[in-house]
Amino acid sequence: MRLDSHQHFWEYDPKRQDWISPEMSRIRRNFLPADLFPLLQDAKLDGCIAVQAEESIRETDFLLDLASQNEWIKGVVGWADLKSEQLDEVLDQYADSSRLVGFREVLQARDPRYMLQEEFVRGVQKIGKRGYSYDILIFPNHLSATLELVKKCPDQRFVIDHLAKPYIKDGEWKEWKKGMAPLAERELVHCKVSGMITEANWQNWTPAQLFPYLEIALELFGPDRLMYGSDWPVCLVAGEYEHYWQVIEDFTASLSPSEKTKILGETAAGFYRI
């Protein structure tokens, strides 16, 4: 199975999507399954994982509704308040939602110590016991705290979104690699090669600037724990879907067929239990 492991849908609302700045005006509109499906077909992908972009239960329900209408939306990474005392009750409501495969929140906007709070750690452990994965959306300065979180939840499946957003625009990789390496040593931690072109210079990035980060990710995690994701439609501020897809195609061209197959879908399907 070939999958895009990371993309978003929304019905644009300036209050709900207040993170979309004037510089990102291209994505200030609705993005729905009918917009994505032709792009997946062109890339010969079988489906996708829809990931939350808004921190609300409404978002989780919205994505699950879209998945129920479109078989090719293979899974949903939703949102829930993991610190809530009512978390168990919320999770009970989704017990029969087979497309709900995991959870995420925008940790990159929070102090790194947020994820080490007792209530948050307990929430991650609770979703893990119910079979859900956790997507980690962070910046490089969160890597140390992320390692501590992972240690506190040794049985939880984690995936680092967007390679933890390395400073590609500045060409920095040494400190980022140093922070990623101990996480890669944890066998239940995976990584998405997604969201890269928006961390580069939006106007003049080149594949050559991205390859060193892809090579490091492959070195650290290997194809068994690496998965392709487009980060569509956010990626559109820096390039078309097919532009980043071609980067991944070119990068994986030198790998064995089985290694390429894993990165382009099998790893994601296994991780999200599709």
Rank of each mutant, 00 (worst) to 15 (best):
M1I: 12
R2Y: 07
R2F: 08
H8R: 11
W10H: 07
W19Q: 06
W19N: 06
S21P: 00
E23Q: 11
I27N: 05
N30T: 05
F31S: 04
L32M: 05
L36H: 06
F37G: 06
L39Y: 08
D42P: 01
A43Y: 01
A50W: 00
A53W: 04
A53I: 12
E54H: 15
E55Y: 03
L66F: 12
N70R: 09
N70C: 09
W72C: 02
I73W: 01
V76I: 10
V77M: 08
A80K: 10
K83E: 15
E85R: 08
Q86W: 00
D92S: 10
A95I: 07
S97H: 11
E105K: 04
V106A: 12
A109Q: 11
A109D: 15
Q117E: 14
E118I: 03
R122K: 13
I127N: 06
G128N: 14
I136H: 04
F139Y: 15
P140N: 14
A145E: 13
L149D: 06
L149H: 07
V150C: 08
K152C: 06
C153G: 11
Q156V: 12
I160E: 02
P166Y: 05
I168S: 03
W173P: 00
W176A: 07
M180P: 07
P182K: 13
E185A: 12
K192A: 07
S194Y: 01
T198S: 08
N201Y: 02
W205G: 06
T206Q: 14
Q209S: 11
Y213C: 10
L220D: 02
L226I: 03
M227N: 02
W232R: 04
V234M: 09
H243Q: 15
V247S: 03
A253Y: 02
S254I: 14
S254A: 15
S256M: 05
L264G: 00
T267P: 02
A268R: 06
G270I: 04
I274F: 09
